[in-house]
Design a protein around this nucleic acid. Sequence first.
DNA 1: ATCTCTATGATTAGTAT
DNA 2: GATACTAATCATAGAGA
Lengths: 134, 134
Amino acid sequence: MENPKKKTLGRRKIEIKKIEKKSSLQVAFTKRRGGLFRKASELTVVCGVEVAILVKSPADKLHSFGHPPGVEALISRAEEKIVGGMEQYLKFLEDFGGKVEEKDNFLIVYLLMMKIEEGLLPSSPIDHLHILGA
Amino acid sequence: MENPKKKTLGRRKIEIKKIEKKSSLQVAFTKRRGGLFRKASELTVVCGVEVAILVKSPADKLHSFGHPPGVEALISRAEEKIVGGMEQYLKFLEDFGGKVEEKDNFLIVYLLMMKIEEGLLPSSPIDHLHILGA
DNA sequence: ATCTCTATGATTAGTAT
DNA sequence: GATACTAATCATAGAGA
């Protein structure tokens, strides 16, 4: 039998421009975010590199990806010290300061991002400055 | 003529594990980083969202991607204020503090990352704390 | 290091659940 | 919000220039 009524049209070519239909945009966002994070994950493995990604959803929710084993270790180490609040946090930064190499700025910033995202840190560096009397 | 000696074998299936051969890894990294950034770019357009990516190359060089028009505007605005060094920078953060909404943490962090990457800011937040007498 | 080449493997648009 | 389906579009491995 010819043309056995295809169930779907398959992938269609699209123009890269903003999707207006809300429901379609939501589906596209979920798929493409997943695709992006998967690609990032493959990159970390295949090339043995560090990657951090932040994406804000159409609903302003923050989604993040990160994978260096080093970053994960830092986050774990930080976790215990940070949950204690601001004082613990400042102490953590000081401890951290003595051990981190120049090239690890990347990791520090990533760590801070994650903590901010989780609501465990003040919302911006500005708060620190004020607290410290700047 | 059958089998006109195919020029390439086409894409081959690979296992997702670290490539050991250095030259292959370098090529794969360049291609996959490009692919990742292209996907990110499409995501920002198709879904109208904000994305920031940091990747450390096998040679420890930092590559970044970012695209919200808002972020670009912030960076421009910041540029003038930041090039003056630490004092200007602190002042910038204070100015910034009065104007930025809670949901803009993302942008702030992204901005800081970019500045650190460019060597325009101290290497870590720790330095601020010390300077401010923490 | 970057750029073809290209067959093949991988992703995803549109729709329904 | 995420997942399943499927055909078509898209990305890229491996090799060479």
